[in-house]
Each structure stands twice: as C-alpha cells, then as structure tokens.
Design a protein around this nucleic acid. Structure first.
Length: 506
RNA sequence: GCGGGUGUAGCUCAGUGGUAGAGCAUCAGCUUCCCAAGCUGAGGGCCGUGGGUUCGAUACCCAUCACCCGCUCCA
C-alpha cells in the first residue's frame, strides 16, 4: 500500500457532510464524548452489527472437531442490580484516585506513587513512581535529601498517607514540597437512581461493559437452552464509560457499542480456545475489507492485564492502524482469558451456585471464559478509515471503498436522463432490487454528479438506464473503484449483484 | 482535569471596530446517451454561547461550551 494515511479531519468532514456521523445534540453545541449516527452511519453500523451476529449466533464458525461451535444470543438490560458491579470489581477497581501537581501540571495515579519518608524524621518526603528502581531512588534522595540515599528512608505507598502530610511531600517532577493536590476520585461508571427518589439506597449504574449481563444469565441460559460446555453467549449493546478524556472522534466516546461473546469452556482448554478465537476474529475483520496490513495482534504485557485476567493465558488485542494512531495501532477487539473470575465472583456475591455440571463426567466445576470483545462503534470507525480513498482523478476527489457487505447502499439505479422513457424503467428496476438490497433511485441532475455522489457514500455499483435499454433491455453497470462500465441484461441485475458481491468478498 | 490551538453558510475557509464573502455541497431550470459536480439562478449565517469594553463588536477582553494536538487516563 503506497497510499497516504488519510487525515482524520477529512474523514470527520465527510461523515458530517454525507450523513454518517454527527456531533450529538449538535444544535446545543454538542456534548463531549457523544456522537449520533446519521442516515448512512446507522446503515453502516447495523450492517456491521448484523454481520457479527450472523458470524457468531446464526452461523457460528466450525470448531476444531469439524462441527459448528454452539453460541446463543442474549440481550440483557443496561441497568443491573448494583451488586453486579461490586462483584465484577468495577465499583472498587473502576475508579482511580488521581493527584495533580500544581507546579508541573502533571497528573498521577495516587496508587502508583510511593513516598520516601526519612527514617530520622528530618527533611522533606520524596514521592516517586512505584516502578522506580533503587538507582532512581538514590538519585532523588541524594539530590533532595542532601546526600542521603534510599536506605535512609522508609518506603510507603502514597495512598496510606493522610492528606495533611501532603504539604511535606515533594512531587515526582519537582524540587519543592507541597505541590500535590489531594486525591480526586475518577469513577468511570455513570450512575443513576432507580425510582422516583434519588438516594444512595437506589443508586444504580449504566453498564460499563455488556459482559456482566452475560455472566448474570449464565445459569438461566444453561437451564433453558440445552447448551453444553463449551458454548458461547453473545450480546451486542450499548455501554457507558465516563472517560476522563474522550478523544479521536468516535474512537473513545462515553457512550459506545460493544459486541461481546463469552465462551465458556473447561479450564484446561482455555489456551486452545483462545488461539481459536483469535484466529477466527482476525479472519472476520479481514472478511469485511480491513486490510491485513492495517491490523496487528498484540499480546498484553503481564502488568497491563485486567484484574480478571491475571492468572490466565493472557489477552490479545486485534489492533487497527487508525490515522490518529499511525504508524501505531489502536484497539479494535480484545480476546481475553477471563478465567473463572466473573462466575466465581457472582457466585460469592449472590450466594447462587453457578457451577456447571458436566453431564458426561458428572463432575461439577466453574467454566473458564474466553472473551472476544469487539467495539462496534470502533469497528465503524475502522471501516470508515479503511474505506476513505482520496482520488484526485475523479470528480468527487474521494471515494469510500466499502466492502459491499458493509456499504450503506449496495447500488444506485440511475436513469441516464430525466426523460420520460428512462425514468419508468429505472423505477421498475429499483422496485425489484430494493426487495433484496438497500439501493438508491436517483433521477435528478446529470449523470456525472450522481456518480460522484455515490462514490462519496461508497456505493459499489451504479446501474444506468439509457436509450439502448429501451431497445434491448440492457443496462450499464458502473463500478465504483475502477469507474469502468459493463453492459448486462436488466433481468440479470440481481443475479449480477449477488455474484459480484460474493466475488469482492472472497 | 492541565497546557496549547481552533470555532464565520451543510462542508472547507477568507475577511473587517461601522451589523459579511468565496469555492464546493443542496435545491430549481436548462443542457447532457455516461463521470460535463457544465451553464443559469435560488435558498441558506443575528460570525459557537453568555457577559464586558465601546456611540457601535463577528473582530478587543473575560467566562463558558465544543472540537483538534500534547499530558493524564483508557481495570
């Protein structure tokens, strides 16, 4: 690929101009971290959503044993009993106390700072990042403690100190004490109140991930659907995170949509299944037209693993080279080994038995979970970025190279002129095709303008009715990417589309 | 949340202390048998919002909101 990385500004502008994505509550000046999907954006998003559902629930992949794997769907509510989030660790772990340095304007996670307290009680206390090695400690101690070294100090986590002591603490990137602010809580979960009165008793949360709804329903699904481990439960839905800094268009927004599948398997098979799902998921993104070179697999370092994945075989991210991360990559999907953390937690907090009884071996155990969790809205962004293709050679200057399976419109039916003879034929063709595919009928303005418009919204095919159509019932097919034309029988348009779309998809 | 930048038509932008322009888009008419987004015309903005200075603010000052970049964050 020799093409340049497109500029995010141009993509955002096209999204607004053509009705893919608007700032949420635009007429009131927008709202930080929220976006609305316009007429074409919702088509694109729904296409992606439906393709995921199909690949997971309707036609799940063939497993290692040659048989299709078993996955069922679910749609759980956004607001759950708040105990859910205590059990999941989100109430404790999803809020990080932060301290700011007034002098350097740096911000630190309070639980990532350590403090050196002089053993003899004299002099300032020195704070450092917790991962500082002894060399750095000696250096800071020497500089700020007048020649002392780390051995002259006690090491204490900042979080165990009182805020009264902060006046005597030197922030990690300064020389004078007393510049640290007191810790502020950043809870990333939105909360609300259930019922008419607002009080702590009926406080509830908007889910920060869809996954927990699946774990809450594990027992219900097992008891009602004849599934047997290994099997999966899939869910698509909105999730909410009160991000400190929403950034990069829809990449990190406060309201977003996830496509998550929890795959329950025997603990000893976790590794095998993780490898299986990584492979499957990567193939899936490729099948939607995401270039293989634009994606990488990235194994999480042990220190960045989430609390639920600490003891497992690890997490792999499928990352895409977004224009704002290039030449680096940003997360599109994570495949995590959540171990038995969630089921165990919910079993403990709810008092319900969530173990699985294997009908063959008659053994009870808690299944382990492999979780392919993809961002639907991030997927939309990746599709937009991938499709955006500047082309100075054509009138529109740009076209959206969507894979036909995700394109909001699969074809446009165009009478070459607005003359009486062309319009009724085109209209009839449109009425036939729209039963099968999302298509546009566009009559107004000259043909060049209409082709250009379809290029900008990424319509793969245009079928044009002209004078020859009247004589021999054929139409021209104009291809978006090449601008080349063929002529085919009007009766074959549907079949042609089927064939071409399969071809482009392979 | 901090620092810097930006905010003028649907989009990209110009502009001035005396209440606004271009290109593209949109719409209409014309033209057109294939990219000729060609021709003609029209609609559309109290210049992000709220204050202040001023006889007068889109312009200067303050605040606020949104977006962009960098921190921070993203279990």
């Amino acid at each position: 690929m020799t093409e340049q990385t497109p500029d995010m500004k141009d993509i955002v502008a096209l999204c607004k101009r053509r009705g893919f994505i608007f700032p949420a509550s635009d007429i009131y000046g927008g709202l930080n971290g929220f976006w609305d999907y316009g007429p074409l954006g919702v088509e694109l998003k729904n296409n992606l959503r439906d393709l995921w559902w199909k690949s997971m629930v309707v036609t799940p992949p063939i497993g290692p044993d040659g048989q299709p794997v078993q996955i069922v769907g679910l749609d759980s509510s956004i607001v759950q009993n708040p105990k859910t989030w205590e059990a999941s660790g989100h109430i404790g772990g999803f809020s990080d106390p932060m301290v700011d340095c007034r002098e350097t304007k740096q911000r630190y996670r309070a639980d990532h700072l350590i403090v050196l307290i002089p053993k003899n009680g004299e002099g300032s206390w020195i704070s450092l990042h917790e991962d500082s090695d002894s060399e750095e400690m000696d250096k800071r101690a020497g500089k700020l403690g007048k020649g002392r070294n780390a051995n002259d100090y006690e090491i204490t986590p900042l979080t165990s100190l009182k805020t009264d002591d902060y006046a005597n603490i030197i922030a990690p990137d300064t020389k004078t004490p007393g510049t640290l602010t007191e810790p502020k809580e950043f809870n990333l979960m939105f909360h609300t109140y259930v019922g008419a009165t607002a009080s702590e008793d009926n406080k509830a949360y908007l889910r920060p991930e869809t996954a927990q709804g699946i774990f809450l329903n594990f027992k219900n699904v097992v008891d009602s659907s004849r599934v047997r481990v290994p099997f999966g439960i899939a869910q698509i839905g909105k999730a909410f995170r009160n991000e400190v800094t929403p950034r990069n268009f829809i990449f990190r927004s406060r309201e977003f949509e996830q496509m998550e599948m929890e795959w329950f398997c025997p603990p000893e098979d976790a590794k095998k299944w993780r490898a299986f799902w990584v492979e499957e998921r990567k193939k899936w993104w490729e099948s939607l037209g995401i270039n293989n070179d634009s994606m990488i697999l990235r194994e999480h370092e042990s220190d960045e693993l989430a609390h639920y994945a600490k003891d497992g075989v690890g997490t792999v991210d499928i990352e895409y080279r977004f224009p704002f991360t290039a030449p680096g990559f940003g997360e599109l999907e994570g495949i995590a080994h959540r171990c038995d953390f969630d089921l165990k937690q919910h079993q403990e907090h709810s008092g319900q038995n969530l173990e699985y009884m294997d009908p063959q071996t008659q053994k009870r155990y808690t299944p382990h979970v492999i979780e392919p969790a993809a961002g639907l809205t991030r997927g939309v962004l990746a599709l937009l970025c991938e499709a955006y293709t500047p082309d100075p050679e054509r009138p529109s200057g740009v076209y959206m190279n969507f894979h036909p399976s995700v394109a909001p419109k699969k074809a446009a039916i165009l009478p070459l002129t607005a003359k009486e003879e062309h319009v009724p034929i085109a209209t009839k063709l449109y009425m036939d095709i729209r039963e099968h595919y999302a298509v546009d009928l566009d009559i107004k303005q000259n043909i060049g303008k209409r082709y250009a418009r379809q290029d900008e919204i990424g319509t793969p095919f245009c079928f044009t009715v002209d004078n020859q159509t009247i004589e021999d019932q054929t139409v021209t097919v104009r291809h978006r990417n090449t601008m080349k034309q063929d002529r085919i029988a009007m009766d074959n348009v549907l079949e042609y589309m089927r064939k071409e779309m399969a071809l482009m998809g392979s």
